[in-house]
Simulated scan of single mutants.
Amino acid sequence: MISKFIYTKILGWKLVGDFPRDLKKYIVIGAPHTSWKDFPIAVLARNSWNVKINFIGKKSLFKPPFGFIFRALGGAPVDRSKSNNKVDAIVDVFNKHDEFRLALSPEGTRKKVTEWKTGFYYIAKGANVPIVMFTFDFENKQVKLSEPYYTTDDMKKDFNHFYDFYRGIKGAKPELFHVPDKA
């Protein structure tokens, strides 16, 4: 497979773990999301594992001349200017499909944030799907995957689990990544 050759042999990255093959629906949270480089790294990794993962992106990415590329890669546009309930809309997407795996950034941006967004968490709870954690570890040139994690009724416990997984991971721009000490 060409993606795996590029990813491992040319770029020198490693794949650690695997996507759950027996699950048809889950959320993938990818962090640290600090650079435009994260997207091509994620696409190459996804293709290397040969698994279909969808993503959402700002509406402007899907306009000509390159919008068709993002759609072909599994993307769907989201209009961030509207104040509609995106969590419920995405839960509906999960409920309407037999197979749907959605990648999101818990930070919600490439800029430094002190608190992670919670949308991915509420989507997972609403759709009753697990969360798989995915790292962009530029220091060790590896993408690492977690086992599926099913949310509990204790949001703080769940977020502390996520934070612990990403602690010590260095993104493309390490100064832009912050893992809170505790939820």
Rank of each mutant, 00 (worst) to 15 (best):
I2N: 00
Y7G: 03
K9E: 10
L15W: 07
V16P: 03
F19H: 05
R21Y: 09
K24S: 15
K25S: 08
I27Y: 00
G30C: 11
H33F: 11
D38I: 12
I41S: 03
A45Q: 06
W49E: 15
V51M: 11
V51F: 09
K58E: 04
K58M: 11
K59Y: 13
S60N: 08
F62W: 00
K63C: 08
K63S: 06
P64Y: 14
G67M: 06
G67W: 04
F68C: 10
F68K: 13
I69R: 04
F70R: 05
A72H: 04
L73T: 00
L73I: 05
S81G: 13
S81W: 06
D88G: 11
D88N: 15
A89F: 06
A89R: 13
V91I: 12
V93G: 01
E99C: 09
T109G: 00
K111P: 03
V113R: 05
E115M: 12
K117W: 08
K117L: 11
T118F: 08
F120S: 02
Y121S: 01
Y122D: 09
I123R: 02
F134Y: 14
N140T: 11
L145G: 01
M155R: 15
M155N: 12
K156V: 15
F162N: 01
K170R: 11
A172M: 12
E175L: 05
E175N: 04
